[in-house]
Nucleic acid binder design. Structure first.
Ligand SMILES: [Mn+2]
Ligand SMILES: [Mn+2]
Length: 549
DNA sequence: ACCAGACACCCACCC
DNA sequence: ATAAAGTACG
DNA sequence: GGGTGGGTGTCTCGTACTTTA
């Protein structure tokens, strides 16, 4: 079934050189001398040395035991390594701390080398105990009495990281993207990449991004209060480039939240004040409320209510207003409760059903309603969001300035920017398709033509032809247009929260969406907003509360 | 879409 | 000796 | 019982091999 094409034995080298060349051409002026030297030196290395270098670069690192390196396509490890040592990419005379050594050894080797008695301790505990006895650093050969061969230390990871960052424009993609494409797992739309546009305008932007990445990593590890303070100290002053600005705000929020949990209210507040992203204002209000500074909280609440950054923030603000108003003796008009249909279902306790595996609530409810005449499907966001992606396809992958910067994108770079629709005025033409029902053909065409191409909104495993046809036949054009408009209004927030189930009634040309709630589960904010929207627009959706018999 | 959002599930608290 | 976790790889 | 706020656990290709417990 899986016809994995055989890759050439050094496929990874081709990928790596492609990437390095790409960056060297486009970002030549942003590179440091060291980085330019690297590209040049690498190019002139013997092939097997290049191979070894790339293989090590995509492994854990930075230390590698020679006896754990074994690649059929590299004939002589020693010889390949020789050139890498010569040009300084690899070092073999390097001092290792005890921790570094310990992690290179298996537990058995560790016990053997340091003659440990308590053999049954976990490895991490052993390391902690032994670490006190060996505070100094030594070379690997000294640590191991030359019993275990060489260790190579890769000295270039910072350079590679920069190349990856410049190529992809983000920190979460790496060389494996190439392989996944080669084996056919992911395929990408053939958009044209803007040669002029560069994600990083200046070296400073690259450095800032790297800095933020490092701080985020430190934040994950940080446990002590001092750690957090140190991170806070290192947060850069406000930034002009807006994606970086966004990342900075997110970091502020995360850090502030950590301070909150340590009851460092003032530190938390000052960080939230620096943030432009939700939930910064919400958190400030909650903190002020907890401090019983109700008037200050109310002020911030009002500023939020007059200019919420999104519906989610507004929704929360209204909730808080209700109880804060009570505390202040003010009146706050509660919004009219929504008229979403709710029903209760009592089903047999699933634990009593013998034999088969445990089903989740949604699946049980689905089976309860499902019939061949009225098929019920567990879709969550996949159906409507997927239809949205198919419908929007031509505009989504339209080649605009700066929309695409590398060959591995499943959405344009500005997909979640407020200006997305403004920059693509021809979206209105796509909306016109709904007026005469041409949207069906359009979406079917996209489904057929774009089969398997990566799109943020489309899960191809989910979308078979039956579901597609069922949905297109039964969901009115007007409903789809309204729903897509709402997604476009705020893609980031409105691409989720859609109901669990959808049941089709092809005979009656009707359908019904169902949000399933088991005992102890409750409607989330984004789900509530969608349900309110459905009810306001006469789109059939209900909540099913399940209890066990 | 940057160890994340995107779900359900768990507990606690307030009426 | 087993299952779970980590890692490398296409 | 509701309404809350807060915190977890799960999962992103699938497979083979090594290490840990
Ligand atoms: Mn769900
Ligand atoms: Mn549900």
């Amino acid at each position: 079934m899986n016809a994995t094409p055989d890759l050439p034995p050094t496929y990874y080298l081709s990928n790596f050189t492609f990437l390095v060349d790409w960056v060297a051409v486009r970002y030549e002026d942003l590179l440091t001398q060291e980085e330019r030297d690297f590209a040049d030196t690498f190019q002139h290395l013997p092939l097997h040395s290049q191979c070894l270098f790339v293989r090590l670069s995509s492994r854990k690192g930075p230390f590698f035991r020679a006896d754990k390196i074994n690649y059929p396509e590299i004939n002589s490890l020693e010889d390949a390594a020789k050139y890498l040592i010569e040009c300084g990419f690899i070092d073999i005379q390097v001092l290792l701390s005890f921790h570094e050594v310990a992690h290179l050894l298996t537990k058995a080797e560790l016990v053997e080398a340091f003659s440990v008695n308590s053999k049954s301790e976990r490895k991490s505990n052993l390391i902690d105990q032994l670490a006190h006895l060996y505070p100094s650093t030594k070379e690997w050969q000294q640590w191991t009495n030359k019993q275990l061969g060489l260790v190579y230390c890769l000295k270039t990871q910072h350079i590679i990281d920069n190349f990856l960052l410049l190529f992809f424009g983000n920190s979460h993609q790496d060389l494996t993207e190439f392989v996944l494409q080669d084996i056919g797992l992911f395929r990408y739309e053939n958009y044209t990449i803007d040669e002029q546009h560069r994600i990083f305008k200046t070296r400073e932007e690259l450095e800032l991004y790297k800095h933020l990445i490092i701080l985020r990593e430190q934040l994950e590890l940080a446990s002590t209060h001092e750690n957090l303070v140190e991170i806070a100290r290192q947060i850069p002053d406000s930034i002009q480039a807006h994606t970086l600005r966004r990342r900075r705000s997110k970091l502020c929020n995360q850090l502030a939240y950590k301070f909150e949990r340590q009851h460092q209210v003032d530190l938390a507040l000052s960080l939230y004040r620096q943030s432009e992203l939700p939930p910064a204002r919400e958190r400030q209000i909650r903190l002020l409320e907890k401090q019983e500074k109700y008037l200050e909280a109310w002020d911030m609440l009002e500023s939020l209510l007059t200019a919420p950054v999104d519906e989610q923030e507004l929704q929360i603000a209204e909730r808080i207003s209700l109880r804060l108003a009570k505390k202040l003796g003010k009146s706050y008009s509660k919004k009219t409760p929504s008229s979403v249909t709710e029903r209760s279902l009592t089903l047999v306790n699933p634990y009593n059903i013998s034999g088969t595996q445990q089903l989740n609530v949604e699946e049980i409810v689905r089976l309860h309603f499902h019939s061949t005449e009225a098929p019920c499907i567990y879709v969550e966001n996949q159906l409507l969001t997927g239809l949205f992606g198919l419908w929007l396809w031509p505009e989504m992958f339209r080649s605009l300035d700066g929309a695409f910067a590398n060959p591995f994108q499943s959405a344009p770079l500005d997909m979640y920017e407020a200006s997305f629709s403004l920059k693509r005025p021809r979206i209105t033409e796509l909306f016109c398709l709904f007026e005469d029902g041409y949207h069906k053909q359009h979406i079917r065409d996209m489904w057929r033509m774009k089969q398997g191409l990566a799109n943020h909104f489309v899960n191809w495993h989910f979308f078979n032809e039956e579901i597609l046809n069922l949905a297109l036949e039964v969901i009115p054009a007007q409903h789809l247009a309204l729903i897509f408009k709402r997604i476009l209004f705020d893609v980031r927030n409105n691409r989720s929260g859609l109901p669990d189930l959808i049941q089709f009634f092809p005979d009656k040309n009707d359908y019904l969406m169902l949000e399933v709630k088991g005992p102890g589960d409750r409607i989330q904010d984004n789900q509530r907003r969608w349900l309110d929207f459905f009810s306001a627009n006469k789109i059939p959706a209900e909540v099913v509360y399940v209890s066990w018999q």
